[in-house]
Design a binder for these strands. Structure first.
Length: 461
RNA sequence: GGCGCGAUGGCAGAGUGGUUAUGCAGCGGCCUGCAAAGCCGUGUACAUCGGUUCGAUUCCGGUUCGCGCCUCCA
């Protein structure tokens, strides 16, 4: 029985889908004006695993992850670059896909782009307007009247009055209340034609929050099961989505809200504004993508995750242990045996709010079992369960000998093989000083040799 | 200021009212020409002060420290 920590109640709840056997999930994706950083990697990987687990658990899942391709920063960046919005966003959508693919993130079923849903957004805004929840401000922006929506703040645990008390942002005077947010932004002077749409309230473009309400209801309906995203979206973005969707439709929007923790650097949130972010592609120059994925998955999704070279290195060593087990013991080519003890524990861990840290621990125990008894069955379980997390899918030798970054990655495999042969000759001649010298030379270049009954094998340190 | 989260062994990181997390690193042993890999063994870890309890790292309260949201942000 799957349990999910629901941000709405701050408790773990038994997961019961609205329609038996079916799950509809929406995750807030990227605003595409720059390369994705590790924080984005975490959202993609975490919800990729959520999606995989739901499917493994037998649910028919529809997974939507949106793309925000219209927003202030996009407009500004396109202007700076002297390129069109579309050219800019297309470029970064492609880059995002490259990064996601590298990390083993499966494509969601739908990746709607905001600009393709402006019509639906307008209908929704119109509906809110009709219901008296939205108003046209002096400056012709259409705003949501937060105080008219009962229950505003239920997701973030804030009350409207507390928010007001803590108000420390100067607000455009056009809003009736500082908390109100923009649904439709009238066109500003100097904005390119590309960001202008006709609407009943004049030429303009949608506010940020409305896109998710519009796209989710269009693709998943007015009421669906899971809505996810990074912790920083809890307020105001998701709070506003609730106000929009429940305000417009008059019933519950989402049953389970999930928020993943931040990636940190030196115990501070990694973010664009702090400038302390590492892009996925930069990290992938130095670390294998699977190591990065493993690094993300070895912690629980709601915990903070500290990024550092030392931690990535630690993750690399750990993953090496599992691949070494799979190299030592060839896995049987069979599907996961879910009745086997480790698989039972793996399932229990994953059913407990996607506890991948615990699930990974089970993987290590399987590695130990496989090694100890030279058990092809245990190796198969290891490979199979690893696969559920999107790990351990490669040929072990490819992982162990793959030279991603590192100080050493350059020495050619053919050169290594040649030196190994030289050393083998020295060994046959009992010329151990020479054999050891060759081994030391290779080690200095980051190559570790292992003598086995079947001959000498190598891996990158 | 308001609201919320957290504090676990050298590092990372789960979890539990009383019994081994797990991984990396370290140490000892087996194996090995020597290594490596693997296996076996090994560490009086649960911020602090009180309370509840037969018993608390685990529950409750205070304190300290850290972090996050309240503004664009995954």
């Amino acid at each position: 029985m799957l349990h999910i920590h629901n941000t709405l109640t701050r408790k773990k709840e038994t997961f019961v889908p609205i329609v038996p056997g079916k799950v509809r999930m929406y995750v807030c994706g990227m605003t595409v004006y720059d390369y994705c950083h590790l924080g984005h990697a975490r959202v993609m990987v975490v919800f990729d695993v959520v999606a995989r687990w739901l499917r493994v658990s037998g649910f028919h899942l529809i997974y939507v992850r949106n793309i925000t391709d219209i927003d202030d920063k996009i407009i500004r960046r396109a202007g700076e670059n002297g390129e069109s919005i579309r050219a800019l966003t297309d470029r970064f959508v492609a880059a995002m896909h490259e990064d996601a693919d590298a990390l083993g993130v499966m494509r969601p079923d739908y990746e709607p782009r905001a600009t393709e849903y402006v019509g639906q957004m307008q209908s929704l805004i119109d509906r809110l307007h009709q219901k008296g929840l939205a108003y046209v401000a002096e400056n012709h922006d259409v705003c949501y009247s937060v105080r008219k929506f009962e229950g505003y703040g239920k997701l973030s645990g804030k009350s409207v009055d507390e928010l007001r008390a803590g108000e420390r942002v100067e607000v455009a005077g056009e809003k009736h209340d500082p908390l109100d947010f923009v649904l439709w932004k009238h066109a500003r002077v100097g904005e390119p034609e590309e960001v202008k749409w006709d609407s009943p309230w004049g030429v303009g473009r949608p506010g940020w929050h409305i896109e998710c309400s519009a796209m989710s209801s269009d693709l998943l309906g007015d009421h669906f099961d899971i809505h996810g995203g990074g912790q920083d979206l809890q307020f105001p973005h998701h709070e506003n989505e609730i106000a929009q969707s429940e305000g417009a439709h008059g019933h519950t929007f989402v049953n389970y809200w999930m928020h993943n923790g931040f990636v940190r650097v030196d115990d501070e949130k990694m973010s664009k504004s702090l400038g302390n972010f590492f892009t996925i592609r930069d990290v992938l120059k130095r670390y294998d993508a699977e190591v990065v994925r493993f690094f993300i998955l070895r912690a629980h999704y709601r915990s903070p995750l500290n990024y550092s070279d030392a931690h990535l290195e630690d993750a690399r060593q750990s993953l090496t242990r599992m691949y070494t087990a799979l190299r030592n013991v060839a896995a049987e080519d069979v599907p996961v045996d879910w009745s086997e003890a480790h698989a039972v524990r793996f399932r229990a861990a994953m059913d407990d709010d996607f506890n991948t840290a615990e699930a990974v621990a089970v993987l290590f125990e399987l590695a130990n079992e496989a090694n100890r008894n030279c058990s092809a069955a245990m190796a198969a379980q290891l490979k199979g369960l690893g696969g559920v997390l999107g790990l351990l899918g490669r040929d072990p030798a490819a992982f162990l000998q793959g030279g991603v970054g590192g100080e050493s990655g350059d020495i050619d495999a053919a050169v290594i093989e040649a030196l190994i042969e030289q050393r083998a000759q020295a060994k046959r001649a009992k010329n151990y000083p020479d054999a050891d010298r060759i081994r030391a030379e290779l080690l200095a270049q980051g190559v570790v040799l292992e003598d086995t009954p079947q001959g000498t094998i190598w891996r990158r340190a």
